[in-house]
């Protein structure tokens, strides 16, 4: 079967972002960008399923600025076969992304769509679930284990109290959690090979999707700063301070 893997270009997870002085947004000028870590895990899982003979082809798609081609090429270097890049003028909302993915699902008819559980910029955790609603496909979110058998996929999910396993009828959607796998490093020869893999460049209009933006950002502010703390020299002093100064112990 074919696997579709949507990937997102986001700020590198090690970067501590700063808010712009006019509080219109965070400042992303000259900041290192990378593939969203959860998307990296999604690509890795798709490639492993191909190595196991479960998947026959991996199509990777990214929606956003033209530079997202770098993230598609990276996914191709790991093992994706071809790419689709849909460029938008501004970052698209989760619902718009889900609608574009729905159109691609209709065209490509994948057996599985594997997405990251959330992107580390907007922290929305929505797109996979929304795609499920729009396509009528079942979803296995926050996956830490994926097993495909016949026309079903069993997904073990990380939930608040522990783990839950659900059985989904294919085609289905999986969103990846951190512990699904350890993404491999990309090798230089594979990076060179990835440059020759096919990439389709599209716009939302090609799919007849209008960009929906009903939620607008009015302001982006830095979080409240914590007051500077003190260093204590011993456990006794720590307990004394917690009891008498902070009054959180009795």
């Amino acid at each position: 079967m074919k696997i579709l893997v949507p990937v997102k270009r986001v700020v590198d997870y090690n970067v501590k972002v700063r808010v712009k002085a006019d509080q219109s947004d965070v400042d992303l000028a000259n900041v290192k960008m990378d593939i969203n870590p959860f998307c990296d895990i999604a690509v890795e899982e798709a490639v492993r399923l191909k190595e196991q003979g479960v998947a026959t082809e991996i199509v990777v798609v990214s929606i956003g600025e033209a530079k997202a081609e770098e993230q598609i090429r990276r996914a191709m270097a790991i093992g994706a076969d071809r790419g689709i890049l849909i460029t938008t003028e501004a970052p698209a909302s989760s619902l718009t992304v889900a609608k574009l993915l729905k159109a691609i699902v209709a065209e490509e008819e994948p057996g599985l769509v594997i997405l990251g559980k959330q992107s580390i910029d907007t922290d929305n955790n929505q797109t996979g679930q929304m795609l499920g609603a729009l396509t009528g496909m079942p979803q296995g979110t926050f996956a830490s284990k994926v097993e495909v058998a016949d026309n079903k996929v069993n997904v073990t999910r990380e939930i608040d109290g522990g783990l839950q396993t659900v059985g989904l009828t294919l085609p289905a959607i999986v969103t990846t959690d951190l512990r699904l796998n350890e993404p491999r490093y990309v090798k230089l020869p594979d990076i060179m090979k990835a440059k020759r893999k096919p990439l389709d460049k599209k716009t939302p209009a090609d799919y007849g999707v209008e960009e929906k933006r009903s939620v607008t950002t009015l302001n982006v502010a830095p979080p409240a700063e914590r007051e500077a703390g003190i260093t204590v020299s011993s456990v006794e002093e720590l307990v004394e301070k917690l009891k008498n100064e902070a009054k959180v112990l009795s």
Partner: peptide
């Protein structure tokens, strides 16, 4: 929670609205 995060975006998309998370 993991439960709310799981089903709510599906509700939003069924209603054709965006979700404001967390």
């Amino acid at each position: 929670t993991t439960t709310g995060k799981n089903f709510m975006p599906r509700v939003a998309a069924l209603m054709d609205v965006e979700q404001v998370s967390e």
